[in-house]
Design a protein around this nucleic acid. Structure first.
Ligand SMILES: [Mn+2]
Ligand SMILES: [Mn+2]
Ligand SMILES: [Zn+2]
Ligand SMILES: [Zn+2]
Lengths: 138, 138
DNA sequence: TAATGAATGCAACCGTAGTGCATTTAATGT
DNA sequence: ACATTAAATGCACTACGGTTGCATTCATTA
């Protein structure tokens, strides 16, 4: 049993061939991936299967969904210990308008925001758009 | 010539009947509106016209577009002096998951965020999801 | 090995966003 | 007032990500 299989089983996700491949793909990427990215990476795979796999991964805390403002949902593996809940691991995300990549800045937590009285925060999303480190070198 | 007509002309937007109505509609609302909202408010109006009106309004700095994470673009009138550029009027937005309204918290500016070296910020989007003041009372 | 439930494949549907083009409307100069 | 011209509008259609229903296949286990 490989590490990936163990990881999936630990999260109560049956480690099917497709799921292992998708997990591997996510682990190799250094930026968040869209459903279409995976679709293109595995010509043979069904869009629906990929879609539902990502859904399952998200529900089980294997990936978190990222809304980077492009209106295309992105996904990235959760760091160990990430539970994607408020006041816990709310890191910010950066979307590069040049290479179109979106990355987790896991070391950069979202600062606490004071709200007007009566408002109750349940989730926070902070996205910075601009030029990433790779693109700014060229 | 009404105030609205003056406002539109000041922003180099020809004050047509439809545009005046849409502006009025936006001004009356205390929360951001989606294209569909306007569509439903004016049964007779063409969706395309509304769509392009909002685009024009946005280009001319009359409204700003809000991405509240619902994947439905919302629009709200700009405050006087709002130019919607970075380091200028970057207020945060609140999306209520109970009443589904999105509001501008214009008094709450987005705090400055330190980025890793090489990253260049051009735009920031901060959305808080939760329960709004009206909904939290009930 | 049969029964069972989960995972997958296939085919659709949905809603928002966006475009192309013909038509109407309004502003301008003669 | 009329013709000219550009802007605004109306209509039809497309694009695309997301989503669902249902039949089929696969894997677990009694
Ligand atoms: Mn992330
Ligand atoms: Mn706003
Ligand atoms: Zn980049
Ligand atoms: Zn509310």
């Amino acid at each position: 049993m490989t590490d990936i299989e163990k990881t999936l089983e630990n999260k109560s996700v049956r480690p099917t061939a497709m799921r292992i491949l998708i997990y591997k793909y996510l682990a190799e990427k250094d930026s968040a991936v869209a459903l279409t990215d995976i679709e293109n990476a595995f010509e043979k795979a069904e869009r629906t299967t990929l879609y539902r796999t990502l859904k399952t991964f998200e529900e089980k805390g294997i990936v978190h969904q990222i809304d980077d403002g492009t209106n295309i949902s992105k996904f990235a593996l959760c760091e160990p210990g990430c539970n994607c809940e408020i006041d816990q691991d709310l890191h910010l995300h950066f979307h590069c308008t040049h290479c179109d990549k979106t990355v987790c800045l896991t070391e950069h937590k979202i600062p606490h925001i004071n709200l007007p009285s009566g408002y109750i925060a349940e989730d926070v999303n902070l996205v910075i758009k601009g030029i990433c480190d790779t693109c700014s070198k060229h």
